[in-house]
Amino acid sequence: MATIFLTGASGGLGHVVTQTLLNQGHRVIATVHSATNTRQRSADSPGELVSYPVDLTDAVAVDTLVKQVITNHGPIDAAVLLAGGFTLGSLLETDAAQIDTMLTMNFKTAYNAVQPIFAHMTQQPTGGRFVLIGARPALDVQSGQHLVAYALSKSLLFQLSDIINATGKPNSIVSTVILPSTIDTSTNRQAMPDADFTTWVDPQDLADMITFVLFDKGRILREPVLKVYNRA
């Protein structure tokens, strides 16, 4: 049983990733907004789900939580950082406040988790794995020009992943960026009811990709950036 620190577990993708990891028999440490800790096993899966409340934008609170998780559950083998947000807006429509909001939601929430978990993994003989969720507009300027704050904030995750890989190489720490196009969630379907859903990415395919790089033959990859676009 591996222990995976997971943010964004309540989202459309996070729910599927959580269940996939539980079905494979892992322990999922999920961050939530509620005020109480919960721990449960499901009769339908061999894994264990443990939820801890934390404000991911508070670096001190996240650092404290990571230390608590290590004390309570032992080493963290992997971190899957899915938390984030989205907003529209071109260069002329996007103000500084929107930039700050997206940086906080998409970059700082990831960085606040990466820093203490990375420090912990450097002390483990087995190292560890990170998975960050990028976004196609961060690389594709044609779509990014309409999502400026979102694209800029997500672009920093590629730099962060490169830094993790460069710094963590001596300690067998590897970071992967998974880069989906539009994910087929109920929220996205409601927002874009006229879209062709068949071209979108199934959340289960992304969950399978995450487990591939964490536990399967994908572990041999170094510095991977995986573009999961389906037919979009």
Results as ranks from 00 to 15, higher is better:
65 L>D: 15
64 T>D: 14
67 K>N: 13
33 H>V: 12
34 S>H: 09
31 T>I: 05
22 L>V: 07
41 R>L: 07
20 T>P: 02
49 L>K: 00
51 S>C: 15
58 D>T: 02
67 K>Q: 14
58 D>V: 02
37 N>H: 07
57 T>C: 14
53 P>G: 14
29 I>Y: 00
64 T>R: 04
30 A>G: 04
56 L>G: 10
62 V>C: 15
34 S>D: 14
65 L>V: 15
20 T>D: 15
34 S>I: 11
38 T>W: 00
64 T>H: 05
61 A>Y: 03
40 Q>R: 06
67 K>W: 04
52 Y>F: 11
47 G>I: 00
47 G>V: 03
42 S>L: 12
62 V>M: 13
60 V>F: 03
42 S>T: 03
57 T>G: 13
55 D>P: 03
59 A>W: 03
42 S>H: 05
49 L>F: 00
69 V>E: 10
52 Y>R: 00
53 P>S: 08
50 V>F: 02
64 T>F: 03
44 D>K: 05
37 N>P: 02
41 R>C: 14
48 E>S: 04
21 L>F: 09
56 L>M: 13
35 A>P: 01
41 R>K: 10
44 D>G: 10
36 T>K: 07
21 L>V: 05
37 N>I: 13
66 V>F: 02
34 S>E: 12
38 T>A: 14
37 N>D: 11
42 S>N: 10
69 V>A: 12
24 Q>R: 11
62 V>S: 13
59 A>E: 14
44 D>Q: 12
33 H>K: 06
65 L>Q: 09
41 R>M: 10
22 L>Q: 02
54 V>F: 02
40 Q>L: 11
28 V>E: 08
56 L>R: 01
55 D>A: 12
34 S>R: 06
29 I>M: 08
51 S>Y: 00
26 H>Y: 08
64 T>E: 13
63 D>C: 07
27 R>P: 07
57 T>D: 11
47 G>D: 15
32 V>D: 11
20 T>W: 01
43 A>T: 15
31 T>S: 09
46 P>G: 10
64 T>Q: 10
32 V>L: 11
37 N>Q: 11
50 V>E: 09
22 L>A: 14
49 L>S: 02
60 V>W: 01
28 V>C: 08
44 D>I: 02
70 I>A: 14
24 Q>L: 15
33 H>T: 14
41 R>S: 15
50 V>Q: 05
54 V>M: 06
35 A>H: 06
37 N>F: 03
29 I>T: 06
52 Y>Q: 01
36 T>F: 07
25 G>P: 00
63 D>S: 12
70 I>M: 10
52 Y>N: 05
38 T>F: 01
27 R>D: 13
27 R>L: 11
53 P>M: 06
66 V>T: 09
